[in-house]
Design a protein around this nucleic acid. Structure first.
Lengths: 185, 185
DNA sequence: CCTCTTGTTTACTTTCGAGTCTACAAATAC
DNA sequence: GTATTTGTAGACTCGAAAGTAAACAAGAGG
C-alpha cells in the first residue's frame, strides 16, 4: 500500500485546482462529478470540502484562475500583432483552462459571466477596427463576432492537434484571422 | 378560464418537439427542466410522458429531427458553391434546432454523437479539398476544422444578429470561409 | 348517449449527486 | 512525546428534478 502524499494547505489547494481544471475540461460542469475531481486529484472527496465550500465555489475558482491567467497574458486592451501570439502562449501555458473557458464555460448559463467580459471586450475591439471597413453596423457586428470566434477556434484546434510547430502557429492563426477580416470588408 | 386546446396525438407530438427545441435551445439539456418544456408547450408535465418515455428520449427526438432536417437540406456528400447557401437555408428554416445542435449538443458528452457524424463528415470533406493546398497533413486537419467552424459560427452569428439581408448572407459567409481557406493555403 | 382520447391536477416515489458527520490514522513540527 | 495538521473511510442527510399513479374533466366521433 502506497503511502499517502501530504501537502501543505496552499499547495494542495493549487493541486486541486489543477486537477479540477483537467477534470472539468473533459465534459464541463454538470457532466463532471466531485468524485471525478477527487479521483483526478488523487484525494478523497471530503478533502475538496476542506478547501472549497461547494462544487460551485470550486468551479468558479477554477474559472477565475484560468481567466486571470488569460487576462495577464493577453491583456484586455487593444489589438496588435502581438495579440494572437499572446493568445497562443496563454493557451499553451494552460491548455485545459483555455479549453474549459471557451468550450464549456462560455455555454453554461450560470458561469458564462466569467468569460463573457473577456469575450465582449474582444469583440468590441474587433468591432472598432472593422467599423472603418464595413459600412453596415449589423454586418460589422457579425464580422467582429466571427473574427473573435476564428481566433479562439483556431487556437483550440491547434491545441487539439497536439500543438504542432509552436513557432509558426501564431502566424497561421493570424493569417486565418486576417483572411476573415479581408473577406468581410 | 380559457378552454383547453386539444390536438390529435401526432400533431401534439410535433408541437411538443417544436416547443422542446425552443426550450432546450436556451440553455441545453441539463439547464432545461421538463417543467420549462411543458410550460413552453403550454401543456402539463404529465403529457410529455404520454409522448416520450423520458427526458433523454425527448431530447434525442428533438436532436434527431433537427439533424434530419439539416441533413435533408445540406446533404451529406460533397462541397459545392451551393453548400453554404443550403446551410443558411437550413438554419433559417429551423434556427433553434440549428443553434441547439451546434451550440449545445456538440458539447454534451451523452448526445454529441447525434451531431458528430455530420461534423466529422463535413470536416473530412474540407480536409480532402485542402489536402491539395496544404502540404503538412497536421495543418490540413487544423484548417479543415477551422473552415467548418467558420461556416457554422458565421451562420449562428447571422441568426443571432436577427438574420439580416437573407439574400446576401450566404455570399458573406462564403467569402469568410474562402478567406480562411486562402489564408491557410 | 356512450366511449375513446386528450387533457388537467395533485400527490406520490425514485434517483442521483451534493454536501455533512464521525471516528480514526499517520506525517510533521515543536 | 505530544499537539496539530493533513489525510482516509464510510455512513449518513438533503434537495432537486425525474418519473409514476390515480382520479377526474370534457371535446369528438360513432
Amino acid at each position: 500500500m502506497e503511502t499517502v502524499r501530504r501537502m501543505p494547505r496552499a499547495e494542495r489547494r493549487e493541486q486541486i485546482l489543477d486537477a479540477a481544471t483537467r477534470a472539468f475540461a473533459v465534459g464541463g460542469y454538470t457532466a463532471t462529478g466531485l468524485d471525478d475531481v477527487a479521483a483526478e486529484a488523487g484525494v478523497s472527496r471530503v478533502i475538496l470540502y476542506r478547501h472549497f465550500e461547494s462544487k460551485t465555489d470550486l468551479y468558479r475558482a477554477v474559472l477565475d484562475r484560468a481567466g486571470s491567467r488569460l487576462g495577464e497574458r493577453v491583456g484586455e486592451s487593444g489589438f496588435s500583432d502581438q495579440t494572437i501570439p499572446a493568445l497562443l502562449r496563454a493557451a499553451d501555458a494552460d491548455p485545459d483552462g483555455f479549453r474549459l473557458l471557451f468550450r464549456y464555460a462560455a455555454r453554461e448559463p450560470e458561469f458564462r459571466d466569467l468569460i463573457d467580459d473577456f469575450t465582449r471586450e474582444s469583440v468590441q475591439i474587433a468591432r472598432q477596427h472593422l467599423a472603418a471597413r464595413i459600412a453596415d453596423p449589423k454586418w460589422a457586428d457579425w464580422a467582429a463576432r466571427l473574427v473573435f470566434a476564428v481566433a479562439v477556434e483556431g487556437v483550440i484546434a491547434w491545441l487539439d492537434a497536439g500543438r504542432p510547430d509552436p513557432g509558426t502557429a501564431a502566424e497561421r492563426v493570424s493569417r486565418a484571422v486576417h483572411g476573415v477580416i479581408e473577406a468581410a470588408s
